[in-house]
Design a binder for these strands. Structure first.
Lengths: 340, 340
DNA sequence: TTGTATGCGTTATCAG
DNA sequence: CTGATAACGCATACAA
């Protein structure tokens, strides 16, 4: 079965392709009668415009591209969920690519998207992206670009992100107000900015509340490892400090859950003997025992906001309105549960 | 900045567009010298073929479409991960759509993909899809189609799925071999086939091992509810049967985790007083205390297999080799942990 | 070995 | 009100 074309309709109706095209678009200069005829037949033949042809003519694809480091992740899949829903409502399609934390791949994928003629691009950068020529290329091609979560400060485009430092600050301040004084931090690798900012927020909260920062309470964990790293560091923490530690703020929920497992196993009472605060508010945080307090990053809102911004810019471009880049900081939220 | 076209290259080199086109494709009838010149300039100008034009000419897009019920789900995001990786390796792009368990939306999305000229389509059907005209349409348009996980038996196309019945049978048989005799089942809604098959597997395992099936031990849970439904039904189970029940096989991990929370809270020992077996092997199963035995559905392999089948069919179509539809049953695996 | 002509399906311009 | 024509960028059959 072949798709119907304008030509098919024109032929059976004995009129020109031009008229058919105009009729379907409700141009003012087509007689109501012709319009009716054309529309009826088009409906009957199930006509849909060929998107290659439209794209070739109008240089727009009604498609956007998204590049994320990885898909199998509650945070990113929630973001994608929001982007897909937003796109759906605007009748856009979405091409999704995983950079897999690989800079070269990310670069190649940008080329693919540009080549594909997408109307806009959303990117959350790979941890290994230090060079931004590929992003500049997008801008040079005049394709709207929004960076989210993992952003590059120097690139001239709209950005959507959370304030990791502030969020960490809030969590640690909460622990302090609850009376905790010896607060450990399980931090991530030195590398990604997120991890640095969360550490800085932790440190600042201590300082602002007159609690001396003790580097011995900071444990560096492997970001990509599974939760067993949390378990192991919890063990180490107790070995190193015994009762001279009363809380842990972890850079993500997974580490906290590993630690919870260790404490449960050892009969160390949470939160009485040690309190815990995670980061990200994975679904898991609400089902573990005890339930884990955590910082909700509002992934859905981040995705939604990014998509809305992108469609705005696409719109502006179509209407030749100059684009003003925006920076949106998404609110995070302390979700207090039973671990502190 | 405008993308380079064949015309640009032809003009600066003073040759025809045809020659440029052929040179880039290494046609035999272009002189090595011309080829070299063309390629060099193309490289320099960063030439990439305009995909709209190519699509219009060749009627293929190097793009496939995927429709899934929902994205924010460990199972589906793992499948997508595999599909994206497979597509990446074949230099294909992937358009992802969420049907959101809505039949009308699914239908519309099929039209969009067809209209978009994708080279193939992968679908996991919505629970509410009872009518398959939209799938037939894909086949009528001669676009390769693979159904995975939630399939329609009557449609003539390749399918990739697990044997839910067998998997459930295996899990329950395991519980029986461990000495459990009063095994409850927390089943899903009556509606999706998965849920029915898992129930049937449960029942068959009992029968085959000479254990009478007791309908009072079967609890119907709301599929879309959160884990609290598992908690509530566990409570009910104990109220109804007291010690006269020694294991539960749940239709998914979430319900099992809800139940675990209840038992932990009540000091009911797992697995001594009651054993648990889940289904799906969510990440959570390995971090909960006690860790939960579950059935791994091999999501990654399912995605990979589906994608490989699709690319095979696309290939056959290009080469005019007749397509033979395949049915692939993905192996499931009992993952035994501490809950039984 | 190179180039000309044609068409893919649509839309915009302009003439009738 | 209608339609002929050109153009988008590329690929191919056919000439030269």
């Amino acid at each position: 079965m072949k798709p119907t074309t304008l030509k098919d309709i024109a032929k059976t109706l004995g009129i020109s392709v031009t008229t058919v095209s105009k009729a379907l678009k409700d141009y003012a200069d087509v007689s109501p009668k012709t319009k009716a005829q054309v529309k009826e037949l088009a409906e009957k033949l199930n006509y849909v415009p060929n998107s290659f042809a439209v794209g070739l003519r109008k240089k727009q694809s009604k498609t956007i591209g998204v590049i994320i480091p990885t898909m199998v992740h509650y945070f990113f899949s929630s973001i994608l969920d929001a982007i897909l829903k937003e796109a759906e409502s605007k009748n856009y399609m979405v091409i999704i690519l995983q950079s897999n934390e690989d800079y070269e791949l990310e670069k190649k994928q940008v080329d693919l998207l540009l080549n594909k003629g997408v109307d806009g691009i959303l990117i959350s950068l790979s941890n290994n992206t230090k060079d931004f020529k590929h992003l500049q290329k997008i801008i040079d091609y005049n394709v709207p670009l929004i960076l989210f979560d993992k952003i590059a400060k120097l690139i001239q485009c709209s950005k959507v992100y959370i304030d990791d430092r502030q969020a960490a600050y809030n969590a640690v301040s909460y622990l302090i107000k609850k009376g905790h004084k010896r607060i450990s931090h399980f931090r991530g690798n030195l590398n990604p900015q997120n991890s640095i900012d969360r550490f800085l927020g932790y440190k600042k909260a201590l300082e602002d509340h007159g609690i001396p920062f003790d580097p011995k309470l900071v444990y560096i964990c492997d970001n990509n490892s599974d939760f067993s790293d949390g378990y192991l560091n919890a063990k180490k923490l107790i070995e190193d400090h015994g009762e001279n530690v009363d809380a842990i703020f972890t850079v993500n929920d997974l580490l906290a859950i590993g630690a919870i497992n260790y404490f449960n196993e050892q009969g160390i009472k949470i939160p009485d003997e040690i309190a815990l605060f995670g980061f990200s508010n994975w679904f898991m945080a609400s089902v573990i025992t005890p339930t884990l307090s955590s910082i909700d990053q509002n992934a859905y809102k981040m995705g939604e906001t990014s998509a809305v911004l992108l469609f705005d810019e696409i719109d502006c471009k179509l209407k030749n309105i100059p684009i003003t880049h925006k920076k949106v900081v998404i609110d995070t939220e302390l979700v207090i549960r039973n671990s502190c």
